[in-house]
Design a protein around this nucleic acid. Sequence first.
DNA 1: CTGAAAGCGCTTACAG
DNA 2: CTGAAAGCGCTTACAG
Lengths: 339, 339
Amino acid sequence: MVTIGDVARAAGVSRSTASYALSGKRAISAEVRQRVNDAVLRLGYTPNAGARALATSQTMVIGLLAQFLEDEFAPAMLEYMLGVSDTARELGYDTLLVTDGDGASALRRITDSRMVDGLVLLNVAQDDVRLPVLRAAPQPGALVGLPGDCSGLDVFDLDFEEAGRMMVDHMHRLGHRELILVSQPEHVVERGGAYVWRLQDAALQQARLRGVTLHAVFGESRQPAVGRSLHGLLDTYPDATGLLLNNEAAAAALPTVLHERGLTAPDDLSVIGRYSDEFARVFSLPYSSIESAPDRLGRMAVRQLVRRIESETGRAEPYVVRFVAPELVDRKSTAAPRT
Amino acid sequence: MVTIGDVARAAGVSRSTASYALSGKRAISAEVRQRVNDAVLRLGYTPNAGARALATSQTMVIGLLAQFLEDEFAPAMLEYMLGVSDTARELGYDTLLVTDGDGASALRRITDSRMVDGLVLLNVAQDDVRLPVLRAAPQPGALVGLPGDCSGLDVFDLDFEEAGRMMVDHMHRLGHRELILVSQPEHVVERGGAYVWRLQDAALQQARLRGVTLHAVFGESRQPAVGRSLHGLLDTYPDATGLLLNNEAAAAALPTVLHERGLTAPDDLSVIGRYSDEFARVFSLPYSSIESAPDRLGRMAVRQLVRRIESETGRAEPYVVRFVAPELVDRKSTAAPRT
DNA sequence: CTGAAAGCGCTTACAG
DNA sequence: CTGAAAGCGCTTACAG
């Protein structure tokens, strides 16, 4: 292994001078800088990450905690992960991916051992057991997903309340008076998936306001249950003319279900989902949707995290809770109801 | 930060004794061991990962290189990633996720700086530019995907040749005499996605052997092109009675396409894909498929990698190239052709 | 503008 | 069975 000592010797300078020449942290004569750079190239020197971390207390790694729970939809998670990983790299950080079932103890392991400079948590629950660990950690943390208690952390999420209202208003404006809202499975709610009820409660309230009947139900997230459950709903509420989906798995399953029933959107049924444009493409989903902006949320979380990591003042800045405004991407799956 | 020095002082022993008590690498009196353990618990000590890495030259991290290319299908990649990450954790390793566009220089960065003890590469191409870098690295590497040159590396992949033959034979046995094989986009082939032609060539040969007409074509991987291309194929080969898919995006788009044409599998068309059971569930795909076993391949790669990392003899063992035998998962999407 | 030295927090021969 | 010391490869005050 070639060390900075080798570089220094080859350049005929001391190790400290070699180090400073590379970091640029103090003035170095042009000639010495040149000799050091030449030596680096000639020997193929790269600083040892562990040694640097030990000396500087900076690892240049951020931890990404992603939980892949049985009843959650993995492909949706991937988009957040890539947003985080790509942004981290742009800002000079590598990403330690943690997918442990037990997120709290994994988090403790990573933070206590100083493997990372900061953390991004995905899929954050109302009363997330990882948060007390994260608050107690010496590293700053950023969340994608709104918990009950945001203290001491930066939080980024879609404005699910507004998304719920938008869905209802859009349908109401077209003339719909009876709608079905399919949320995530009840398990997700029980586990504290706050976005489920944030969207649902707002939608229900808006429906009351507009005089619209809204049947709010929990969906499923795995085949074949998700398909069966959609069939059941359409059987149960035959007069509903619009379908709102806050459930990626249900959205992915809907084309098949509609096909099996011989229905077409928007002729027979108007449909609005809540997922990203990328998700729509990947799953060939022809339904209008509220853009969930996973890449943007991942970027925002990492940017803020790195700001806190890198600046003294950043550490002390007040914590932020930032909501992305929902946007409706029109894919022509809604229309006036059949009369 | 609490260090092993703090633990040693609290336990009234030297730092080396504290270290040995924790590692168990030499005999320690029961009483001292007890005092050290108590101190660890009381102070909440966790070893500093960077310091340990520096002292031992072991990071207990493996690097996972995943390339998300524009014309490849991300959700399929996720399954491999989780197989790797979960297995790594079981074996005591964390996972550094690298998703850089430029895989070769990212790989060099990770290996030169000694951030990882070993590497798993996904999505390996015939003439993968990352392989020379990996071979030159001091850490061992394992591949998921078969390159042209396997020297110096452990390689794991699905037996795509056998998969191609199985698809053709299965259809032939049911009485089909004209089939369409939809592969990945031509870009994937040009970039060296060897599995595309490994399956295709074997399928073509088997078709000749059986007297079956096989139209082998490149598909697309993004909406809306993938749907249009499937429509085009069904228009071009109206007499084909069976469809073989070596293209996850095409499989995901097929339900919608068949719906739009008013076709049903297997009544109007027999279909076999090549994807995992998990993928079938996630995308609600009702088609029989050759199991691509991403989790198993990820596990195998990590197991072998860790064996090489951890044992002296493991380092020296001959390199392996191991193929997973394809299995056909029957979802009742094939039948005798309509006469 | 440059160098000698201390220190980051571990592990592990070397001594006893 | 235990301790004092060296060393892993860096960075960064401290001196000049």
